[in-house]
Amino acid sequence: MVNPQWLRSFVTLSELGSFTRTADRLDLTQAAVSQHVRHLEGQFGPLLIRRPRAIELTPAGCALLDYCREMDKAGERLNARLSDADSSNGEVSLITPGSIGLYLYPILLAFQQANRGLIVRHRFAPDHEVVEAVLQNHYELGLVTLKPDDARLAACPFIEERLELVVPAHEDVHTWQDLERIGFIDHPDGKAMASRLFGRRFPGNPGVRSLPCRGFSNQVGLILEPVARGLGFTVIHQYARKAFAHAEAVKVVDCGPPAVDTLWLVHRAEWPLSPRAARVLEHLRQEVAH
């Protein structure tokens, strides 16, 4: 590694063009400045052409000066990254389950439009992938449906999300027979969600597996498409329904006492959130509270 003091002397000399003025600015002797330059020339070859009233950099000197400038810029980037004091610039990374992610992503994009210095990086993932991504520092913020039991993670409630029975807009559902007539649109968590909700709304029912299945999708953004087309009903989290583009084509059936899941915000416990992440998080909390 090149001695930083030697480089400081060389850069200042390149700027001022005088050994005397360089020594004065750096509070060194002229002999010390000359010695620093000799050390560098011993390592990189001739750097300066000394003239009576000025100095001129050789090609090697120009290359070393460029290197010094690049190092200064790298140092500035490192300081900015370590201080992380700017809440208006840089990357904000969030990894979430599908339902709440569908709802939050447009909010994040709108916030980015108003704050062009920010870069939003979002990914959909199940709980175990969210936890691992945050632990590995691939994402700063995560949302999970089960509070993780890991001392490396800080977890706090973010929002409660209800399960909803969603049917085509023209359908009326009052009895189990209505569900049998309409048919079920399944998804990876569909039967588990439906069983939880139907136990409250239709006590003593024969079980969701007894219902005719009219379709299946593993893409949370597409589950309501067949419902909107009148092909069946489904049970999903409320934010997937709120994010659906054709809200007029579906409706929610009142099922009495709600079945609710708490979504937990997680991040690394050993260090504080970056100012930009804290700012975005506060904005998200305000938006979902509306």
Results as ranks from 00 to 15, higher is better:
3 N>M: 06
275 P>Q: 12
96 T>D: 03
231 L>T: 02
265 L>T: 02
13 L>I: 09
67 Y>L: 14
217 S>I: 12
26 L>Y: 02
224 L>D: 09
98 G>Y: 07
257 P>E: 13
68 C>E: 10
37 V>C: 09
160 E>G: 12
152 R>N: 04
25 R>A: 13
106 P>Q: 05
5 Q>T: 13
40 L>Q: 09
174 H>N: 12
127 D>S: 03
249 A>I: 12
127 D>E: 09
173 V>M: 04
287 E>F: 00
185 I>P: 04
243 A>C: 08
98 G>N: 00
40 L>S: 05
252 V>E: 00
150 D>A: 04
246 H>D: 12
264 W>D: 00
289 A>M: 10
159 I>V: 15
230 G>F: 03
179 L>F: 06
156 C>L: 15
117 G>N: 05
63 A>G: 03
164 E>M: 07
164 E>A: 11
184 F>R: 02
150 D>Q: 05
177 Q>F: 03
170 H>D: 14
55 I>T: 11
250 V>N: 07
54 A>K: 13
6 W>F: 14
242 K>T: 06
120 V>K: 03
127 D>G: 01
139 Y>G: 03
135 L>H: 01
142 G>R: 05
202 F>S: 02
74 A>L: 15
17 G>A: 10
50 R>G: 06
255 C>E: 08
11 V>S: 10
60 A>V: 11
252 V>F: 02
26 L>M: 06
97 P>I: 03
122 H>P: 03
204 G>Q: 11
89 N>V: 15
267 H>V: 02
88 S>D: 14
152 R>E: 12
93 S>T: 15
36 H>Q: 09
227 V>S: 00
56 E>H: 11
60 A>C: 06
145 T>C: 10
257 P>A: 15
177 Q>C: 13
43 Q>S: 14
228 A>N: 05
140 E>D: 07
140 E>Y: 07
100 I>Q: 01
252 V>K: 07
73 K>L: 15
165 L>S: 07
234 T>W: 01
28 L>D: 00
225 E>C: 10
288 V>C: 01
46 P>K: 05
126 P>G: 05
93 S>I: 11
53 R>T: 15
69 R>E: 13
19 F>W: 05
290 H>Y: 09
51 R>H: 14
23 A>E: 01
96 T>V: 12
195 S>F: 05
173 V>D: 04
229 R>T: 04
33 V>D: 07
174 H>P: 02
55 I>L: 14
92 V>I: 13
79 N>I: 13
72 D>C: 09
79 N>C: 14
260 V>T: 15
280 V>G: 00
257 P>I: 07
84 D>T: 11
214 R>K: 15
33 V>Q: 01
59 P>V: 00
273 L>G: 08
191 K>H: 12
50 R>F: 04
268 R>H: 09
220 V>W: 07
106 P>D: 02
244 F>Q: 08
209 R>H: 14
208 V>A: 06
181 R>V: 10
211 L>D: 08
152 R>T: 07
11 V>M: 11
49 I>K: 12
273 L>R: 03
159 I>C: 04
13 L>M: 08
